[in-house]
């Protein structure tokens, strides 16, 4: 499991972990039933405090994305995640909010923005897919 931590823009580390794992589950990189690394393993791997990792795992557990099993391990929850669709929408909305804010600051009207979006979508379809665009949410 690949997680990238940045301390540059003030997002708490546990939140970065939660978001990236959510994203990886939502995009299918982490399949249901797969075991997540242990708290200690992940902490040593990405060099953050184990308590922070534990907090992120707790958070994911309360929303039902992962489950602790009795054999002392954390697994991605089985079955279609009830939150997957909702989560995708939420994450995209967050990024779109940022886009809208910037557009309004640059005084670009909504119609132009939508037109631009269509243009980019056509250009995007011709290019090979981007790698991991999930790393940072604003």
């Amino acid at each position: 499991m690949h997680i990238h931590i940045s301390t540059r823009d003030g997002v708490p580390i546990y939140l970065q972990i939660v978001r990236q794992i959510k994203h990886q589950i939502a995009s299918g990189i982490l399949a249901p039933g797969r075991e997540l690394p242990s708290i200690r393993e992940l902490a040593e791997n990405i060099l953050v405090n184990p308590n922070t990792v534990a907090r992120a795992y707790r958070e994911l557990e309360t929303v039902g994305l992962v489950e602790k099993r009795r054999t002392a391990g954390t697994y991605v929850a089985e079955g279609p995640s009830p939150l997957a669709r909702h989560e995708k929408v939420r994450m995209l909305s967050e990024r779109m909010d940022g886009l809208l804010a910037e557009a309004s600051q640059m005084k670009v009207p909504l119609e132009d923005l939508i037109e631009l979006l269509h243009q980019r979508a056509r250009a995007f379809a011709k290019k090979p897919p981007l790698q991991n665009p999930q790393d940072q949410a604003p």
Binding site: R40, L47, N49, P50
Partner: peptide
């Protein structure tokens, strides 16, 4: 060093 800190409190 960071790894040592993390292992210590783990």
């Amino acid at each position: 060093i960071l790894g040592a800190i993390i292992r210590t409190i783990a």
